[in-house]
């Protein structure tokens, strides 16, 4: 039990040091935005648990919006991140392209969400 606990805390500290060492300022900003998006999603789930999911389409739209923005941002992050994170780097030459694609996808997402929200 104690060994497992120590290994978890071990892992956590390793992870922290790895993160602060390897992540650039740009990516940290992106990560904070990711955390915020995740929070909005969690808030909606908590609300749903407490109050209920009555206008189901609105609830669904809200959740899908959080999830969608989150995964799109992660995708953007994958485009921007250096290749050291266990996944091969995507096209490094096209940061601008990646950002334009990100904006385009978000436009579609929010259009659909607005329409669905009712």
């Amino acid at each position: 039990m104690t060994s497992a606990g120590s290994s978890v805390s071990d892992i956590w500290s390793k992870l922290q040091s790895h993160y602060w060492q390897t992540t650039t300022q740009q990516l940290r900003v992106l990560d904070s935005f990711l955390a915020f998006t995740a929070l909005t999603g969690v808030a909606q789930v908590v609300y749903c648990g407490l109050v209920g999911s009555f206008p189901f389409n609105s609830f669904l739209a809200g959740i899908m919006c959080s999830v969608g923005v989150f995964v799109l941002t992660v995708s953007l992050r994958l485009h921007l991140a250096p290749s050291g994170d266990g996944v091969a780097a995507l096209r490094r030459d096209s940061v601008k392209n990646a950002f334009a694609e990100y904006v385009f996808c978000n436009m579609i997402l929010f259009l659909a969400v607005m329409n669905f929200m009712g």
């Binding site: 669904l60 999830v67 969608g68 992660v74 995708s75 994958l78 996808c105 997402l109 659909a112 669905f116």
Partner: peptide
């Protein structure tokens, strides 16, 4: 990473659009 980007984007947009 390509697979992640492709599926996540496809799923998030696709299932939301399909609900319309």
């Amino acid at each position: 990473a390509r697979l992640y980007v492709a599926y996540s984007t496809f799923y998030a947009l696709g299932s939301l659009l399909a609900m319309q």
